[in-house]
Structure formats: C-alpha cells, structure tokens
Design a protein around this nucleic acid. Structure first.
Lengths: 216, 216
DNA sequence: ATGTCATGTGAACAGCGTTTACACCACTCG
DNA sequence: CGAGTGGTGTAAACGCTGTTCACATGACAT
C-alpha cells in the first residue's frame, strides 16, 4: 500500500493510493445528505476521480461497501457507549442514563452510519465481522444492565430483559425522531434526549432504582 | 373506469381494467419477499402483463406508489389500533396492552407495509394525505394515553409523553426484532410480544397503574 | 533490471426509471 | 347511430446504474 497523493485525492498518478478510504468517506457524506439509498456506486468512483470499475478492487459489490460502513459504525457506536458507561461510575443509574444520551448523540452525530446500521435491511447473518460488531455494541448495554441489576437486593429482573427494554426504547426514539435531514421526521414537544431520559427514569423507578444514585 | 377482465389479470383486452390495484398488490408481495427496495417499477408492469410506461398513468413515479402503499398501511394500522383499544374496555391498562400487541401483530402480518411506513426514509412532509394518515395512527395511541392518565388522581404525567414512550418502545421492538423475512433480525430469548408487554407493565407500574385493572 | 501482483482503465452488458409520441376503446353527446 | 373526447396502454428511446472482462500500469521485492 502506497500513498502517493495528497489526502484530498487531487494530483494523483495512475494509482489513487487511498481509494478504499476515499470511497467510504464519500459514501458517508452522500448518505448523510440524501439517505441510505441516495448514493450511486459509480458516483463514488467519479468523486474519487477514478473509473467505474476501480471500486470493485476494494469491495465485492455495492452491498459490501454498505456492510463495511455499517461495521465501522458499530465499532464507533460501541466505543461511544463504552465511554458513556465509564465502568458504571459514578453509579449504575447515572451511567446508564449517560449511555442513553450517547445512543441518541451517535444517531445525531453520525446519521449516515446509524441509518445503514439499523434502517437498511442489511444482511447481517452472512457477514460474521458485521454480526460480531453489532453484538459487541449490544454487549455494552447488556453488561450495564447486569451491573445495574446486581445492585438490587429483591425482585431482581432479568438483566437481559432490562437491556432489551432500554435498547428498544432508545432505538425507537432515535428511529422515529432523529435523522433523515431534520425535515422528514415527526416533531416533538421535547428533545428526544429528554424523552428518553424521562422514559428510562420512569422504567427504572418501577424496578426500585429511583433513588439508587450516588449523592456526592 | 371499466373492469373488462377477470380479477387475476388474465384474458384482458387492450385495457387492463384494474391496473392500479394490481400494481399495489404486486408491490406489497415483492416488498414482503425482498425488502422495501427489492422491487422494480418495471417489474410490477411485467407482472401485470403491461408495458413499462403504463404504471405512469396511475402513479407520478415510483415514489408515489410507495407513498400510496404507506398511506394505505397507515389506515389499516389505525384500524387495528382502534379495534385493539376498543374504547378503553375493559379498562385502560388492559386496552393499552392490547394496542401494544396489535402494534406488533401489524408489523408481523404486514411486514411490507410496516417497512414502507417506518423503515424507508419516505418523504412524509410533501404528501399531506400520507402525513394525515400517519398522524391519525398516532392519535389513537395519544387518546389511549389520555384516557389512561385521566384515571390517575395524583402525579399525573403528561399524556403525550406517555404515548410517545409507548410508541417508541413498541416501534423499537418491532424494528429490531420483527420483519425482514425472519432471518435478518436478531434473536430473542422471548417473543417480542412478551418483551413489549413486560416493558409496558413495568413502565405503567411506576406511574401507579400496576393494579388499575378491571377484575371481573 | 526483472518479474509479480495489487490496483486502475476502457469498453461493454443488461436492467432500471422515466419521457414522448402515438394507438386503442369505453363512454357521452348530438 | 355516429363522432369525438379523454382515460388508458404501447413502442421506442434517453441517460443512468451495477457489474464484468480483458488489458494497462507501476510499486515493490528479488
């Protein structure tokens, strides 16, 4: 692998030198602008100043590029959740709420990735790396729920179920009220963040965790 | 408008007689089989035994057909929710749970409609009929939440917020765990229906509605 | 210097969405 | 009953897409 060109793709010779990354970056930009099916494979090639056949040296087909975009998305998503969880500090309830905010923040900051990860019917069963990345993301929420349930002494609910509830609520809110260029989505009398925080609070209160916060 | 052919589309003359409906039916079938972007406009024409230009007599373009599919979907969706709500009988909590089951049942029974309605970035701002249909569907959940909140005497939460929480949870579960041909989705240790019912129960319990059921 | 292999090219293919000018025919009106 | 009109379908064409193939290039190891 050789990088014989400036990072913006101009002034190259016969070989691009960074085509794979350039294609992914352009795809992310176009998807963010025009939705998950709003880019043409050939268009990425044009933007990189390369022939329509060149991308096929780096991706088996259009779907493979999408899968790679989704995989990278899941990895950054996992990082964001992990950072927000922060080992359960200062206390599990506060940390879980931080995860919720991180979830929505990701959908806002990387609408293109989020759309490809969740709103495309991307085949995640025949791409082991993609499936694994997706499971690592959910594992963060599951571990968080386990830590949270472990603090309870009675009427302990299944941690997996709690994780699925939080995930579903966060995903539902993100999917209904965030993304698609700020225009195509329904309006809310509150921010999605506040909506999610209130929902999680109500939910956890029912589990007896309403006051299980660190009070420094 | 004349129907000069048998209902299955065979044996017609120059005019099809039922093309608009035939196109929509075929679209629903193909979307259910291959996902929301898995059908070609021309393919619908072929299936109806008609030239590629004929569908343009009935729909401005491919997107208009999708919008019509979504609009009809929202109408059947509204009916299903309304039936499940059943005027809040026997009691609002039980009726709201029935709505939750109806929500998931719709996503299961009409995966094609559901996908077009919610998982395509369909432009619902520039089609008033579509937008109205979508709002009528949500209005059912909102009225249900209002009836439910009206039964509370203290600490009454905003009904709109409750409706948004229920909707988001139901949509999150449907979107993550139902549809796309039973294969492309994540596996669960319980049915989506049970997951949703448990979530709603925990949520409502926190609002003091855990025992607000009719006990005949 | 030479050979190799990853990477890019050019040309071609079928299929798609869409438009245009034209053909048909069920119906209304005289 | 006969003429004409408007809704519906046709044929042919356009540019664009995803994809493949044989071939060209040149970075790098030997």
């Amino acid at each position: 692998m050789t990088f014989d060109k400036s990072p913006d793709g101009r002034g190259r010779g016969y070989h691009h030198g960074n085509l794979r990354e350039a294609l992914i970056e352009t795809a992310l930009r176009l998807i963010a602008e025009r939705g998950p099916s709003g880019f043409a494979f050939v268009e990425l090639a044009r933007a990189a100043g390369v022939s329509p056949a060149a991308p096929y040296r780096h991706f088996a087909d259009r779907g493979a590029l999408l899968a790679e975009v989704a995989r990278r998305g899941f990895e950054r998503f996992t990082e964001a959740l992990e950072t927000a969880w922060n080992g359960g500090r200062p206390d599990p309830v506060t940390a879980l709420e931080a995860c919720g905010r991180a979830y929505l923040a990701f959908a806002r900051r990387e609408p293109a990735s989020y759309a490809v990860m969740f709103e495309t019917g991307i085949p995640l069963e025949d791409d082991p790396a993609l499936r694994a990345a997706s499971e690592r993301a959910f594992a963060v929420l599951r571990r968080a729920s386990e830590a949270l349930c472990a603090t309870m002494t009675q009427n302990r609910p299944p941690a997996l179920m709690v994780a699925l509830h939080i995930w579903s609520l966060a995903h539902g809110i993100a999917s209904l009220f965030i993304g698609h260029g700020e225009s195509g989505r329904r309006r809310l009398p509150m921010t999605p963040e506040d909506l999610l925080e209130a929902g999680v609070l109500i939910y956890l209160q029912s589990l007896g965790l309403g006051a299980a916060r660190a009070t420094p």
